[in-house]
């Protein structure tokens, strides 16, 4: 099952530059939460704080509290955090020298699983969850880079799922994909929310409207509005949200 995330007064810096200003929000478990906002608004930084990637950047600094369920995320070992909070990036990034199978199995191997049949089971299960199994089951040991862009992205999702995370962060996961692959990823997200808590950063308003239960609008590092997606797209409370989603700025 997915875990809820509670963010309290989260601030993030790049050197001297404050990019997130006192963000507080509760992310519901087993729901899809979309993060929208113009470029540079801090939405990617925000989700990168949720798996402690931001602090790996030189001069990246974070302050505030993030709880995963009841556990303080910043008191945990960052390696453990990244296992329970998986991430899928904008551009599919399979390991180029590895096969399809190895791409999914690598996280498990690093986690100490050595038993071959267990590895194969977990790889199959992950590929099935990522809706890719039927397309690759006969070529598991072929190079991952031979897959199409959409397939590579689903492979990256499978790779993230293999280590059995509780939260899945997706940073514009479909922006480099064609419309059909985009819809497949969206369908997948809707299926995956039964088992995971999903946060998705997207520039595509309609994508947020289609798949997210809740939507958060960020602007200049601030959380402007956060609420039910349908309400957000039919009657947003804040004029800035209205102007952004109707394409009148940003």
């Amino acid at each position: 099952m997915g875990q809820s995330i509670t963010v309290e007064n989260l601030q993030a810096w790049y050197g001297e530059q404050l990019t997130l200003r006192e963000i507080s929000m509760d992310v519901d478990a087993n729901q899809v939460t979309a993060i929208i906002g113009p470029s540079g608004c801090g939405k990617s930084t925000f989700i990168r704080c949720l798996n402690r990637l931001h602090e790996t950047i030189p001069q990246g600094k974070v302050r505030g509290r993030v709880r995963l369920g009841t556990e303080d995320l910043y008191a945990m070992d960052p390696v453990d955090v990244r296992r329970v909070v998986g991430m899928v990036f904008q551009k599919p990034n399979p390991f180029p020298t590895m096969s399809i199978y190895e791409n999914v199995a690598i996280g498990l191997k690093l986690g100490g699983i050595r038993n071959k049949s267990e590895l194969l089971d977990r790889v199959e299960q992950s590929l099935r969850m990522a809706a890719l199994w039927d397309e690759v089951k006969d070529r598991l040991h072929k190079p991952a880079v031979a897959l199409s862009g959409g397939q590579q992205q689903r492979l990256c999702i499978a790779r993230a799922l293999a280590v059995e995370p509780e939260v899945l962060l997706m940073d514009e996961p479909a922006s480099a994909l064609d419309p059909v692959s985009t819809l497949r990823v969206e369908e997948l997200v809707l299926q995956l929310k039964e088992r995971y808590t999903i946060l998705i950063v997207t520039h595509n308003m309609q994508q947020a409207a289609r798949i997210a239960d809740k939507t958060a609008f960020f602007l200049n590092g601030e959380l402007i509005e956060y609420g039910d997606t349908t309400t957000m797209f039919t009657k947003p409370a804040d004029k800035r949200t209205e102007d952004y989603i109707t394409g009148r700025f940003g």
Partner: peptide, 9 residues
């Protein structure tokens, strides 16, 4: 145009 918010209303 995929209208939202006031435009959609």
């Amino acid at each position: 145009q995929q209208p939202v918010a006031t435009d959609l209303r």
